[in-house]
Design a protein around this nucleic acid. Structure first.
Length: 158
DNA sequence: GCCAACGTTGGC
DNA sequence: GCCAACGTTGGC
């Protein structure tokens, strides 16, 4: 990564029952697979780069919210689960020479002392424009600004 | 468990 | 290309 690279910031969502920040702490790194939405796929394939910073969000949790931080450690590559007939994310329409779905590798950085809840995020005026908080926003991978990333980290340590 | 907001599928 | 039906997401 050179000095000219502009670091980017993202929210990755996961249901903690499926894969939590604690799982990532245990594994140290993981391939982020199973994303089956084209807009999120485009981010993973074309936007997310090594060194980018990630807010790790727990969805369908009590409470839902940001549980910690991860960092991208490998650029996008084809998601192997799309070719695995035994995997719930198998996609019969995807071809090996033209993969439809991508994932990146992320590395554990930090588990917050407490989850910064969605409810708290909504009370923060500085986060009003954050993609995560927009009505109907359901993407599992979405971009945020550096300021938003830093601010959520501050909240986690206050 | 409910349901609103989306995305996808498939008939036409 | 339209759009109704259906499936999924995810907060509450």
């Amino acid at each position: 990564m050179g000095y000219t690279d502009a670091m980017q910031y993202w929210v990755f969502k996961s249901e903690p029952g499926a894969y939590s920040i604690e799982d990532l702490r245990r594994d140290k790194a993981t391939f982020w697979d199973g994303v089956r939405n084209y807009q999120a796929r485009n981010f993973l394939r074309d936007g997310v780069r090594v060194g980018d910073q990630i807010l790790f969000y727990h969805s369908n949790a009590r409470p839902p919210g940001v549980a910690g931080i991860a960092e991208v450690s490998k650029d996008g590559s084809p998601d192997p689960t799309q070719f695995d007939t035994q995997d719930p994310h198998y996609d019969a329409h995807s071809k090996k020479d033209k993969p439809r779905w991508y994932g990146v590798t992320i590395t554990f950085k930090e588990r917050f002392p407490e989850v910064v809840s969605l409810a708290q995020l909504r009370t923060e005026k500085k986060l009003r424009r954050m993609t995560l908080l927009q009505p109907g926003q359901r993407l599992s991978v979405m971009p945020i600004t550096r300021d938003e990333f830093v601010y959520v980290c501050t909240l986690a340590h206050t």
